[in-house]
Amino acid sequence: MSLLDYLLPYDFSPLTILSYMLVMGFYGVGLIRMPEQDRPGSLRIFAFTLGVLICYAVMQTRFDYYAQYMFFVHRGQHLILHHIGPILIALSNPLPVMRFWFAKISPGWRHTLRPLGWVYNVLQQPFIALFLFVGLIYFWLWPSIHFDAMLSRDLYWVMNWSMLLDGLLFWWLIFDPRPPAITSSLGYGRRMLVLAAAGVLQMFLGAWIVFSRDMVYDVYEVCGRAWPLDPEVDQLLGGMLTYIPPAMMSILGILLMLRRAMHQDGKYTNQSKQLEETAS
């Protein structure tokens, strides 16, 4: 197989390619046109691009072939779509670019798009966000659902897209750069609680897969593997990818939040005092 075969999509999805092109297009044009002082630094631009690129790579290159026929590669794919890719994108803080484009939307359109904002606000309730984030992992790994998702092309695409979109929502809620003391973003304590809960719940599932004696996900057995790997090794590796890296990411997220909280400690107290005074 030539290099081109590895880079071309295994299952070509025009909608997926179009979405990625639009995202990179809007980001790039936004960067060029926006005022110099608002423009994110090169490290942030790099993080954003890398995040988008790795998500694209696991969906529209030969990687996807291996993800369809190997359980552990599939777990790696979801690790990128649900964790690493969205984390990089959220940490890159594309808010200035989004603000730039938001300012270009006409007031009429803004009015029509308002329901989207309401849906977003509901989805970003911490409890709902946590439920969706962990629930989706459990849902798609539920053995009978997983079997169907790997057999049906449509379900497979729904699975991967739902993981990516929910990953973006969740990690944006967690890494929202706006300080909670003066904006509506989620407080640091709650962010850490959500992260801890997500970590523990994912560890339960990962541990269950790792320590399962039976074949839990036999669809790969039935439909053939990409190469003859021992089914138990495949399941063990897949379980470990569900168990360890997500738990580590929760901890890293908590540390990052602690650092931010300590940095901002006392920074906004004057303002809150003022607020208290006006309130009383």
């Binding site: 299952d11 790997m150 053939g224 190469w227």
Partner: peptide, 26 residues
């Protein structure tokens, strides 16, 4: 095979030229 979400692959041939083929068992 792709249409029915399955795959197949060929192993390296042995000395006698025979090789195993991995395929769906369903």
């Amino acid at each position: 095979a792709k249409r029915y979400r399955t795959t197949f692959g060929y192993d390296e041939p042995a000395a006698d030229g025979n090789y195993a083929v991995s395929h769906s068992s369903a």
